[in-house]
């Protein structure tokens, strides 16, 4: 589903954020991307979204080399990828329902489909009763659930999450992880960058660790860090 082949990314300022990274993620996998601040996790995700272009090497997504994707085909790539961010990126002038529907509207989905899909997805994230609220009337955890609903409503092959629980307390985090887990079970590949040791250790999924732009660990059923205590 996702393959990094000798990927190097050097930003304009000369900073090399990723250095010769190789990774292969299968369809349906759940991958944690860990590493200290500045190690290149967000860069990894931005390259997948084609917000940035690889300096060397290539990235293959669903059989397509996206490092060579022409400008006008980028939207097509992004329709296959849902995104979740630490700061939610919800539209404050739209209700919960409208925020989710917006993601379908702007790629031209028919209205009848929107009308059936949005309530279903809101139900999945447990917000069916709050469809008419505005984002400012929701807690952080609820806002993040709206953004998950928006990322998932077009049934993408892949969901990329950049520290989705970074602003949330532990109890709320557990709720968010449950939803992501449920989405993952539908066959959606999930790549999640995080600093949250507790959830990585609790879920025991594949862990890719970056350090100064280099892949230093790629472990199935891994834990957050080598030096951390893990309950047996």
């Amino acid at each position: 589903m996702i393959r990094f082949e000798h990927v190097t990314k050097t930003y304009k300022g000369g900073i090399t954020a990723l250095r010769d990274v190789n990774a292969d993620v299968q369809k349906g996998e759940f991958v944690f991307l860990v590493g200290p601040s500045g190690s290149g996790k967000s860069t990894f995700l931005r390259l997948l979204l084609r917000e940035e272009i690889t300096s060397e090497g290539r990235i293959v997504v669903a059989g397509r080399d996206i490092s060579r994707l022409s400008h006008w085909k980028v939207p097509q790539l992004r329709r296959n990828i849902g995104t979740i961010f630490q700061d939610f990126k919800l539209l404050p002038s739209k209700t919960v329902y409208e925020n989710v529907a917006f993601a379908m509207e702007v790629i031209g989905r028919p209205r009848s489909v929107i009308r059936t899909q949005v309530p279903q997805v809101l139900d999945l994230v447990g917000l069916a009763k709050k469809a008419g609220r505005f984002p400012t009337e929701l807690s952080g955890g609820e806002q993040q659930r709206v953004s998950i609903a928006r990322a998932f409503v077009n049934r993408p092959l892949i969901i990329l999450a950049d520290e989705p629980t970074g602003n949330l307390d532990p109890a709320t985090t557990v709720g968010i992880m449950r939803i992501l887990d449920r989405i993952n079970r539908t066959g959606t590949t999930i790549v999640m960058a995080t600093h949250d040791q507790r959830i990585v250790d609790a879920m025991r999924r594949r862990v890719i660790e970056l350090d100064h732009g280099q892949l230093v660990r790629d472990q199935a059923r891994g834990v957050y860090g080598i030096g951390t205590d893990v309950a047996p």
């Binding site: 006008w72 329709r79 990828i81």
Partner: peptide
């Protein structure tokens, strides 16, 4: 700009934006 950002993230075509 927020709408535009979201539109691009979910893959709205440039013309649509």
């Amino acid at each position: 700009r927020r709408e535009i950002e979201v539109m691009k993230l979910v893959g709205a075509s440039n013309w649509f934006v």
